[in-house]
């Protein structure tokens, strides 16, 4: 994955809790054998509604998605992360991510920004109030800020994951450095 140090830009106030990956990318989109082209399927069923927040012109070009709690529940499909990235999102902000979604995001360089519910609410209100507000997410300092709205808050990201974002490490390459340990562990179990 590529290194991610700072994400800066406008945001889409999705809100909503318990957004499952079936909503992020419906199953009819999962038949593709490529990693690209999923952006068109992002929230496909909700985008049919003209009033859906992603269809509103003032949020075009946003890089950050502001979601409610329990974002990315359900299916393990990494296609959900690919769809968000392909659409143009570089970070998702939520009070709580589903485990597999969070894992998938960190593998492909989509930044999961886990904030307190109060911070999440404040950001949603600020962006709904003024869609042109710029947010800055600093990976190194683990800070999310919306200066125009006077918001600055820390977010949770463990050191190891932070460093992987900062350096854009290839996980498989890293694991293969431990070939000797893996080989030592293996015993000839044949299933």
């Amino acid at each position: 994955m590529d290194a991610v140090r700072v994400v800066q830009g406008t945001a889409v106030p999705l809100g909503r809790s318990d957004v499952d990956t079936d909503q992020i990318i419906p199953s009819e989109w999962l038949k593709r054998v490529e990693r690209t082209g999923f952006g068109r399927g992002l929230f496909a069923d909700w985008r049919v509604d003209r009033d859906f927040v992603l269809n509103q012109p003032e949020y075009a070009g946003a890089r950050i998605l502001l979601a409610g709690a329990n974002f990315g529940t359900g299916s393990s499909r990494e296609h959900a992360v690919w769809a968000l990235q392909d659409y143009g999102f570089e970070a998702v902000v939520s009070p709580r991510f589903a485990d597999i979604f969070r894992n998938n995001a960190t593998k492909t360089g989509l930044l999961p920004v886990e904030v307190d519910a109060a911070v999440s609410d404040a950001l949603l209100a600020a962006v709904r109030d003024d869609p042109s507000i710029e947010l800055t997410i600093d990976v190194e300092r683990r800070l999310i800020a919306a200066p125009a709205a006077g918001i600055e808050a820390e977010f949770a990201l463990d050191d190891f994951t932070r460093d992987r974002f900062l350096h854009g490490l290839d996980d498989i390459g890293v694991a293969l450095r431990y070939e000797a340990e893996i080989a030592a562990f293996e015993h000839p179990v044949v299933v």
Binding site: S76, E78, T108, D171, I172, A175
Partner: peptide
């Protein structure tokens, strides 16, 4: 697991 992890397990069994 997600697809990146599937690739990881295929390549390393870890």
């Amino acid at each position: 697991i997600g697809t990146s992890e599937v690739e990881h397990v295929l390549a390393t069994q870890t």
